[in-house]
C-alpha cells in the first residue's frame, strides 16, 4: 500500500508539479470559455440565418437563399462527421500555410468553436421549428415583423427547449480542450504528460486527472440538474 501511494500519489512529486498543473488549469479554463462563447454565438447566428433564409422570397433571391441554406447544412454536416482531433491537427498545419499564423492554441480554439457551432446550430434550429406555428401567426397578426417575432416571441421559447441538450453537448465539446495537448497547447493534460516524462512517476497524471475533475465535475452535476429542471417537454 505504501508503495502504491508512493507511486501514484507521491506527495513530493505532486507538490513539485502543482504550479504547472495550476497554470494548465488556467489555460484549459480560458480556452474553454472562448470556445463556448464563439461556438454558441456562431451557432445561434447560423440558426437564425437559416431560419431567415427559409422564408418565402421572390425568384432570383430565393435561389441565392437556397444555396446559402444548403451551405450552412453542409458546414454543419462536415463539422459533425469529422473527428475534432483531425480538425485541430488540420488547422494547426493548414492555416499557417494559408498565411494565417495560428498557434496550437488558436487551432484548438477554432476547431472546437466550429464543432460546437455546428452542433448548437442543429439544436437551436430544432428548437425553432418546435415552437408552434400559431406563435408566428399571432405575432405577425399584431404587426410584428419577421425579426421582431423571431427575437421576442420565438427565440425565448426555443432557447428554453434547447437548454438541456445544449448544456450536455457544450460540456462534451469543451472537454475536447484536452485534445490541444497534441498540438502543444499548454493545458492540463500537456502539463501532466510532460510531468510524467520528467519525473518518471505517474503522480502528475493523477494530479492532472484530479484537476479535470475539479473543473468539470461541478459542470456535469449542474448539467444533470439543468436537465431535470428544463426537461424537454414531451
Amino acid at each position: 500500500m505504501d508503495r502504491f501511494l508512493f507511486t501514484f500519489f507521491n506527495g513530493e512529486v505532486m507538490w513539485e508539479y502543482l504550479p504547472k498543473i495550476l497554470s494548465g488549469m488556467w489555460v484549459t479554463t480560458y480556452l474553454a470559455a472562448f470556445v463556448i462563447a464563439t461556438g454558441l454565438a456562431l451557432g445561434l447566428l447560423l440558426a437564425v440565418l437559416r431560419s431567415t433564409l427559409s422564408q418565402k422570397m421572390p425568384a432570383p433571391l430565393s435561389w441565392l437563399a437556397e444555396a446559402l441554406r444548403l451551405l450552412i447544412i453542409f458546414f454543419v454536416d462536415v463539422m459533425r462527421s469529422v473527428p475534432p482531433l483531425v480538425l485541430i491537427v488540420l488547422f494547426f498545419y493548414g492555416l499557417p500555410a494559408l498565411g494565417l499564423d495560428i498557434a496550437g492554441l488558436g487551432a484548438t480554439w477554432l476547431a472546437l468553436s466550429l464543432v460546437l457551432a455546428a452542433f448548437a446550430e442543429e439544436i437551436y434550429w430544432a428548437g425553432l421549428i418546435a415552437v408552434a406555428k400559431g406563435q408566428w401567426e399571432a405575432a405577425r397578426s399584431t404587426g410584428l415583423g419577421f425579426l421582431q417575432t423571431l427575437i421576442y416571441v420565438v427565440l425565448p421559447q426555443a432557447i428554453r427547449l434547447t437548454v438541456p441538450p445544449l448544456t450536455n453537448r457544450t460540456i462534451a465539446i469543451t472537454k475536447g480542450t484536452a485534445l490541444g495537448q497534441v498540438v502543444a497547447v499548454q493545458e492540463i493534460l500537456y502539463q501532466a504528460y510532460s510531468g510524467l516524462s520528467f519525473s518518471s512517476n505517474p503522480s502528475p497524471l493523477t494530479l492532472g486527472a484530479l484537476a479535470y475533475l475539479v473543473l468539470f465535475l461541478p459542470v456535469v452535476v449542474a448539467g444533470r440538474w439543468i436537465e431535470t429542471r428544463f426537461a424537454w417537454r414531451r
Binding site: 472537454k175 475536447g176 484536452a178 485534445l179 497524471l205 493523477t206 475533475l213 468539470f216 465535475l217 452535476v221
Partner: peptide, 19 residues
C-alpha cells in the same frame, strides 16, 4: 457516470495507457 463524463476521454486514455 458523472466522474467518467467529467474526465476528457483523451485524459482517461493517457492515464490508462501510462499508469
Amino acid at each position: 457516470v458523472d466522474v467518467f463524463r467529467a474526465l476528457p476521454p483523451l485524459v482517461l486514455l493517457v492515464f490508462v495507457y501510462n499508469v
